[in-house]
Design a protein around this nucleic acid. Structure first.
Lengths: 229, 229
DNA sequence: GATAGTTTCATACAAATGTTTGAAATGCAA
DNA sequence: TTGCATTTCAAACATTTGTATGAAACTATC
């Protein structure tokens, strides 16, 4: 191929427009106008609008997933094959939060695009997200190694809640900012990651949740410390 | 007015179709076909498609919000004006989770509609959701009464995380089910509510727990030495 | 520099969609 | 019944949308 110019211009323009205005009201004509290319170029290079969106999303997803797995492997290597649960959770939520939050990220098109993809759920993206389960299984496996003997159910709930806090923070950062009247600092990504990780680990180490919530997580926590050593 | 027949038929049909197939690919023509009414009836009775969707959503939202506030007030009355933090969080997440989860709810159109509204974020619904902040402030106020002296920031983060876990469980219950290979029981709503409440309270009372999990410099800024009395 | 393959372009297509219209039907009060 | 307001209806409107087409422009190879 001669030069990716047109193709890349479309990708860049599409990502920017989708990030700014959402999938709902950005048409192919908007995109090609922004990219200064012909309308037919989209179908020529990508086949269809949905495939364009899919390519945008997979590119960014692969990026995030790779970072996650890199952090996970680093943590496992450092721990001789078994990473501490804190580090596993950090590898899980860190890349996403770092990618989408923070002051400098305000200008990052990629970040804003991923936030958009998290808020609006458009069919081509949903299809890709469904395949994410395989990726998460690797984290479940690492967690199982880090907390042997613990019921799988608890592992999955902990993983689920960690993602819940991370994604919800990204999705609803505007609302949290408004609710807290700016008191919650959403630019301090480090602190947010720490916070999510801390709560996730607490959730994971609290033991079985019976029908009564008054239960105390304290003694179970002691047991974990022994295991984790 | 003679009889709300047409109007209600449209509302019912719309809610059912949106719940089943999502906002993306349900047209007014689908709705009026399902309701056995004329196409123009929608614009006659509701003004526009968006106003129809908005009416559907506000109806269900008001329902949930009323339940929440009822539970909150009941808890505060029982506690002589100050409710336990557990009960506040329960009032916050209970109604939503009870409304959208559980085995019998599989057939509930209203529940499936609200799940849909939570997954897909369509403009008229987003506009309404933005007004939800005022409603949440009442819970922030109750939490402040329950945990006096605690930094507001911590309150907001706790509130935020509670909603994160509740909504994410609703949004991603399919994925959690698949990830856990059915091991996570999403029909046991009681247990789920307990779980979310427990973790939320833990997140809120982090500073109180003497045996903090990690040696992280983590939530230093949020750990107030001044505890509530 | 001719040729084959690739890319770009203007334009047209076809389908879908929310909305409007004006007349017909219906309900209700006097 | 008559008259008036409300409601229903079929049909059309006016866009907008993604996609397809076929010719033209370009590129690289021989």
């Amino acid at each position: 191929m001669a030069s990716d110019h047109t193709r890349s211009a479309i990708l860049a323009a599409a990502e920017r427009l989708y990030a700014d205005r959402g999938f709902g009201d950005v048409t192919l004509r908007d995109i090609v106008a922004e990219a200064n290319v012909n309308l037919a170029a989209v179908n020529y290079h990508f086949g269809s609008k949905d495939e364009l969106i899919a390519e945008l999303f997979v590119t960014r997803s692969i990026q995030t997933n790779r970072e996650r797995l890199n952090e996970l492997r680093a943590a496992e290597d450092a721990g001789g094959g078994r990473a501490a649960i804190e580090d596993i959770m950090r590898a899980l939520v860190g890349p996403t939060l770092r990618g989408c939050l923070g002051p400098d990220r305000e200008g990052s098109t990629a970040a804003r695009f991923m936030i958009r993809a998290s808020i609006e759920s458009v069919p081509p993206i949903r299809r890709i997200k469904n395949r994410e389960v395989d990726h998460l299984r690797k984290f479940a496996a690492a967690m199982r190694r880090a907390m042997p003997g613990r019921d799988d159910t608890e592992l999955y709930w902990g993983l689920h809640f960690a993602l819940a806090m991370a994604h919800h923070t990204i999705r609803e950062k505007e609302r949290l900012l408004r609710l807290s009247e700016g008191k919650c600092d959403l630019d301090d990504v480090r602190a947010i990651i720490d916070r999510v990780v801390t709560v996730s680990v607490m959730a994971l180490t609290m033991g079985d949740v019976p029908s009564k919530p008054a239960a105390r997580p304290v003694l179970v926590h002691g047991r974990l410390t022994r295991q984790d050593l």
